[in-house]
């Protein structure tokens, strides 16, 4: 059942590549804007790189949240999902995973290239990519709650940022922190363990909270 949902969403993403590419290019543009804003001084940029890449990833992931449920909502598929005999939490988990595959994974793959723009050393690039690999699924999981709550509301897109961004803060701190710790020569294992713990906690709670939110929004 889970695979049906994921397969369908991936198929839709393949047929509508523009959506995927917009998010990715947003990510690239935001990251590339910072040197223009703060100046090309490489030492400054190297220090700021993990934070910039992570904040841009947060924003890119958040911007694509609107699409998670709204298309299904507009064409009536969401009603069918809600009325499926399969557990709604499971179906929602499928939607979250496909959201991550469609928006999160391209960000992870693009991150090392952007890191080079900021002259990050190789080891930092690896840690940055791994931290995004571990952190971006959390963004999709938590973001889904906000997307479900704001479904069909006026100005839902802006509202979702108010709801979701504060909840993203721990991921930002430990994601960017891991890279900084590794460049400073400190261990980043603790950061990764904590990110992993967040991932597990959100895997357990987010589908359930999102399912409840969808039922509320569809009433």
């Amino acid at each position: 059942m889970l695979t049906w949902v994921i397969r369908r969403d991936l198929l839709l993403a393949v047929r509508r590549q523009a959506d995927v590419l917009t998010t990715l290019f947003f990510f690239i543009i935001v990251v590339s804007l910072f040197p223009l804003g703060v100046g090309p001084e490489m030492n400054t940029l190297r220090i700021m790189a993990p934070g910039i890449v992570w904040v841009a990833a947060l924003l890119a992931s958040m911007l694509s949240l609107g699409r998670m449920f709204s298309n299904d909502y507009l064409d009536g598929t969401l009603e069918q999902i809600l009325l499926s005999p399969t557990s709604l939490s499971l179906l929602v988990l499928g939607k979250m995973l496909s959201h991550w595959l469609i928006t999160g994974v391209p960000l992870v793959l693009m991150a090392p290239v952007l890191g080079i723009q900021y002259d990050l050393p190789f080891s930092a690039l690896v840690v940055l990519t791994l931290s995004l690999l571990l952190g971006t699924p959390i963004l999709s999981l938590i973001g889904a709650i906000g997307a479900a709550l704001t479904l069909g509301l006026r100005g839902g897109g802006v509202l979702v940022s108010l709801l979701v961004l504060p909840l993203y803060i721990p991921v930002l701190i430990f994601g960017a922190g891991a890279v900084e710790a590794s460049t400073a020569g400190l261990g980043f294992e603790a950061h990764f363990s904590l990110l992993g713990a967040f991932l597990l906690v959100s895997l357990v709670f987010a589908p359930w909270a999102t399912a409840a939110s969808l039922r509320i929004s569809m009433e």
Binding site: I142, I145, F205
Partner: peptide
């Protein structure tokens, strides 16, 4: 829902900010 999600997150946020 958002208040409950928030209240679960507050200790996590507080802890991570302190870290």
């Amino acid at each position: 829902i958002i208040a409950l999600v928030g209240v679960v997150n507050i200790p996590i946020i507080y802890f991570s900010v302190q870290w």
